[in-house]
Each structure stands twice: as structure tokens, then as C-alpha cells.
Design a binder for these strands. Sequence first.
DNA 1: TTGAAAGCGCTAACAA
DNA 2: TTGTTAGCGCTTTCAA
Lengths: 331, 331
Amino acid sequence: MVTIADVAQAAGVSISTVSYVMSGKRAISQETRVRVEHAIDKLGFSPHAGARSLASRSTNVIGLQAPLRSGVDVHVVMQIVTGVVTQARKHGYDILLLASDDAKALERAARASMVDALLVMDVESDDPRIDTLTGLEHPSVLIGLPAGRRAIPCVDFDFEAAGWLAVDRLVALGHRRLALIGSPPEVMARHTSYADRLARGFLAACEASGVVGTVHPCPSSADAIDTVEAVVAGDPAITGFFVHNEGALPHVAARLVELGRTGAQPLSIVALCPDDVARSVPGLADSIAVPAEAIGAAATDMICEILAKAAKPTVRLLPPALTGNASTTRK
Amino acid sequence: MVTIADVAQAAGVSISTVSYVMSGKRAISQETRVRVEHAIDKLGFSPHAGARSLASRSTNVIGLQAPLRSGVDVHVVMQIVTGVVTQARKHGYDILLLASDDAKALERAARASMVDALLVMDVESDDPRIDTLTGLEHPSVLIGLPAGRRAIPCVDFDFEAAGWLAVDRLVALGHRRLALIGSPPEVMARHTSYADRLARGFLAACEASGVVGTVHPCPSSADAIDTVEAVVAGDPAITGFFVHNEGALPHVAARLVELGRTGAQPLSIVALCPDDVARSVPGLADSIAVPAEAIGAAATDMICEILAKAAKPTVRLLPPALTGNASTTRK
DNA sequence: TTGAAAGCGCTAACAA
DNA sequence: TTGTTAGCGCTTTCAA
């Protein structure tokens, strides 16, 4: 193994000089710098991460707790993770992936000084991890927006605004009775923050626009079709659909397109999903993108800024934007 | 921060005793052990990971390079990662997630002693990362099976056997002309190992069984339907379908079910995908599960055994198994 | 502009 | 069965 001492010797300087060349924390003459950098390259030196963290009391690693369990939106999770890892590298950080989504894992990583900070996904309002995080000395950022005290900075998509946006769009297309085809029943039941916020925005916007809106949980499988049938049977006048359920989307969209073709009136669908998912669904031109990768990147930026003492903890919600044109299915 | 010295003092022993209590590397009297463990609990001591890795020359971290780019099978990747992380914890390891899928990232992690070993996903035959890994002092395991020298241990699903199994099943159901609806054209074109192996098994099995088999690349989107149309138009006598393309599966299955209902003859579909994906697709009871989580776990076991000097590097292929009953769509 | 040296918290000889 | 102590490779203060 190549150590800093080897580099120092090869360059004919002291160990501290090598260290300072790397950190840039003190002025170095042009000549020495070149000699040291040369030696580093020639020997292929990489400072030992453990030694570094021991001496500097920081690891350049961020712990990320991602929900690997099922029931979550795989694409979205993947994209957020991608955003986190990619952005972290830009700031010089690596990502330690913590699986088991319990508070213990967070504590372990923090107390063993394996990480400088923690990024936690999929947090619910009464999540015990929030207390754990609050008690830790390490800074942390939540990806999501639990209700409540809000003692920890959060980054998320503005689901509430997305609800408004979808309604505005559907109303603009002339629809007067709208349905939100949403998350699976289990997600709705545990009042997951984003599902609640989306429904709240949707319903408030309906009321503000003077149209009728209803919210329908929907399983993420082929059974989703049953939900559509039930909604349509329950109120045949519903012509505006807002679909937020990646697993169900292809089925729901297919069924709605079919209904639109055979039915008495034109239907419109607005989907809420990552861009690439929207593109893979036929008959779906109108969608609100969940900027999953951007969320991951934004959360990472925030934690890095906090680590650099450059920012105060805040809540940050990324605004929704409409993509494509209306997919009104005409008769 | 609580250090080992604090624990030693609290327990009235030397720091080496505390260290040995934790590692179990030497005999400790019952009494001392209890005192030390008590102190550890009371003080909430976790040994500093950096200090530990500096002194012991091992990190208890495994680097995992996962393909976070698109074009890959998100569910499968997620499940493999889940398997890796979960199993790693059982062996006492944590996972450092390396994103950018270049050789540099692997070298960096290894040379900076951030990891004890590397797990690399989605490796292709002429992948430059293989040379890098071979040149490293750290052990590594590939998740996948690149052709060629095979200097590094591999763990993967036995796609070739899966091809045989699917054909056997379809032939047993009475089909005589079979089609493999496979990976996207770009994946096929770069001769990705698994796609090649699957096709090889499929075609060999067809020949062995004396039936006609053809292989068709297929985009992972709604355009997949066009592929189905083209295949059926090209040879209307094809009645046995083997589908391996998660993105296209719902569309292909839906179209085939429809064709089976309206067409002249019964069709059968065998899908190759994770179990839960199979369950979410309607009209699809027959599938071969890609044991993605098990692959991740197996790869982790292998690398841990290698680290423990308990196993020699080998190639390990997990066998396929058929799930459910035939979804023969009768007229 | 540079060097010497004191730790950082732990493991693992070596000693008792 | 336990303690003492020499590092592990780096950062950073203190001195020059």
C-alpha cells in the first residue's frame, strides 16, 4: 500500500506538505506542488479513508436509508437514489446504503462514525426515526414531508401543488367531474404524507374550481382495472382522470382509453409519474413529472450545504410541471 | 464521543480487554465480560469505524456497483440490491453504493481502503472493469456471467437453463412453433450476456425438441405491441410465447390474451420475471421467476466467504423454476 | 513556505 | 486471564 510517507519521500518533502498539497489548506510553492503531485500520480496514491476520518473526524460519506421493501414505487426510488449518488459524488461524498428501515441502523452508522450525515427516505409523520435523528449529532435531511414538528430539514416534490395543477388542466379541458386514481389502499390507509397531500391539493382545487372531485385508492396490479370499472359505474359522468399509481398506470390508462373510444364522451387522463414511465404508456400524452432524480439531487445539495455550514435547515418542495399535451380520447 | 478508553475506565479494565471482549479473539472471564458489556451498553459505545479500519486493515464494507442508468430492469436491479444489502448485514458488512459504472470508481474505493471487497453488477464480456478488478488486491464477485477468461468469480441466474425450461413447458402444452419475445434491441445488439444465454438455451431446446423457435427483440414500452403484431403476422402458426422483458410484459401479455381470445387457436405464455411482477400481470399464470433477491444474497455470501478465506472463487448459477399453471388462452 | 510531532481511536503483538 | 504499548496513515498545531 502506498502511504503519504512514500509520497513525501519520493517528492523530497515532509508528510505535512503532502497533506497540505492535497487539502489546499495552506500556501504551497508552485515548484513543491508540482513535485508532490507528480509523486502522487506516479505512485498512484490514494489516502486511506479510515486514517483520514480518524484524523479529520469526518468521513466524506453520507448514509442513505432507502425503502427497499416492496409496495413502493420502484422507479421513483431508483431515480431518487441515482440523484443522490450522482450529486453526492459531485460534492466529494460517497453513499453508504442502509437497508433495514429502522432507527437502529441510523444510530449505528452515526455513532460508529461511518457517515457525516444521514439522508432518510420514506418517512411517515409519526416515524420513530425522526426522534432518533433529532437526538443524533449528525445532520440529516428527510426526503419526504412528514406532518408534525418538522425539526429536520425536508426535501420533497410538491404533491399538493401537483393536485392543483392536474385539476386546473382537466378543468381547462372542459371536464366537470374528476377522479383521482391514487395509491394502493395500504398506502392511503397509513396516511402516507404524499398521498394525503396530493388528495388535499386535488380536492381543494376541485372545490375552488367548482367541480366535483373524488379520490379512489387503487391496487398496483392488474386489479387496478376493477377500480376503474367501479369508479365509472359509480358515476358515469366522470370524464377527467388524474392517475397517481405507477403500477396501475398502464392498466388504468389502457382501460380508460378503451372506455373513451367506446363511451359517450371524451375522457382525459393526467398521470403523475416519472417522465420515462409516462412515455412508455400508450394513449397518455398529458402528465405531471415526478422529478425523482432532482429530488435526490436537491436533498443531497441541502445536506452538503448543511455540512459545509453554508445553509440553514429548511423545507424545500420542488414545484410540479405539466408535460405533453392532453390525451383527450375522443369518441 | 464515547471511546474505548471511556469504556475501559468505566469497567475498570484495560482497553485491550474491551477490544477483546468485542472481538472475542481471546478468552475473557465471565465476570469481566459482563462488566465490560455493561459499560458498553451504559455508555452507548460504538467503535469508531475509521480507527478500526486503520488498525485492523479491514473496513467491513463491501462496495457495490449497481447500474442506476435506465434501460435496465428496475425491479430486478432493486431486488438484487436488496438481497445484497440484507445479506451483507447478516455477515456484518455494510454496503457502499458506487454509482458511475466506470472502472475508476472501483479503483478509487479499493485504493482508498474504503471497502474490503467489490460486487459488480451488469458486467459485459469485454467490460474494462474486469481488467481493473483483476489488477486490484481486493477480492470481487461479478453479478452476471461475462464470456471470456472468467478470472473473477460470478453469480448469476442460469438463463440458459431457463430457456430450456420454458421450451419444455410450452412443448408439453402442445405448442410446436415458439417465439421468444426478448430484451430491447439495444440490449440484444450489444450481446448482453444474459440475453444471449437465454436465446441460446431457448433455441437449443427448440432444436432438441424438434420444434420451431424464433427470437425477437422487443422495446420495453407500449411499442412492444407492434412486435407482437409483427411476430404473429410473420408466422400465424406460432402459439407458444416466452416473454422476457419486464417493461413490455404487460402490453405483450394483454395483446396475446386478446389474440388468444379472438384467434383460431389457444396460445400459451411463459414469462421470465420476478415473482411479484408476474403476479401483477393479468392472464399470466405461468412464469419462471428471476430470483433476483436470491442472486444478490448468493453473490454476497460468496464474497463474504472469500473474505473469510472459506471459499474458492467459482461460478455459481442459480437454477430456474417454474411457477403457477399454464395460462393457455382458450378460444 | 516548509517541517516536526502530537494525537485521532482502535487492534494485536508482546509481556506478565 | 489480563495489561502495556507500538503502531495503523492521516490531519493539524506549533515552530522555524
